[in-house]
Design a protein around this nucleic acid. Sequence first.
DNA 1: CCACGGTGGTAGA
DNA 2: TCTACCACCGTGG
Length: 168
Amino acid sequence: MPSAPCSEIPIATISGVFLATYSAAGLSQLDFPESQRASRRMVTTNIPLAHARWHRLATRAVQAVVAGREVTELPPLDLTRGTEFQQQVWRALQKIPLGQTRSYREIAEMIGKPNAVRAVGGACGANPIPLLIPCHRVLAANRKIGGFSGGLDRKKSLLEREGVQWRT
DNA sequence: CCACGGTGGTAGA
DNA sequence: TCTACCACCGTGG
């Protein structure tokens, strides 16, 4: 029995070609078009049926977020690569509705660690599935843009499409 | 250990 | 408002 390999499959959007990675448990990673990983992508052949099914959902979901539309259905997300703390943060991020934002402090409070504010920032930066785990909807407490590992320009355009305002 | 963040709150100019 | 300074805490080396 071959151990289940990961599939890497591109997702074409109006903002470039992302790269989705699937494990046996679900979507495990999403890379930005300009990332090394996305540009060096190998074409995965013999894609398992489960991965193909998840990919259809992931494709629609990524295209929706990029366009500022509501996500209807997500594939299962495999977050097991993260630490316990990171997984808590990532789950909290998933609760932020389209068009809304939270501060790093509010996320820290949501997971019951009100003082772990900076660590929350770190966990956001380690988010393996940006867009679908909407770390772009986290702003600084003063309502300024904050940071974004995928590039601030991308964060800004995502927020713009969702109709979110921030302070310059 | 130590150093480093996608922070936040305070103080003073 | 802007700057400087520091407490805070999870990660990775």
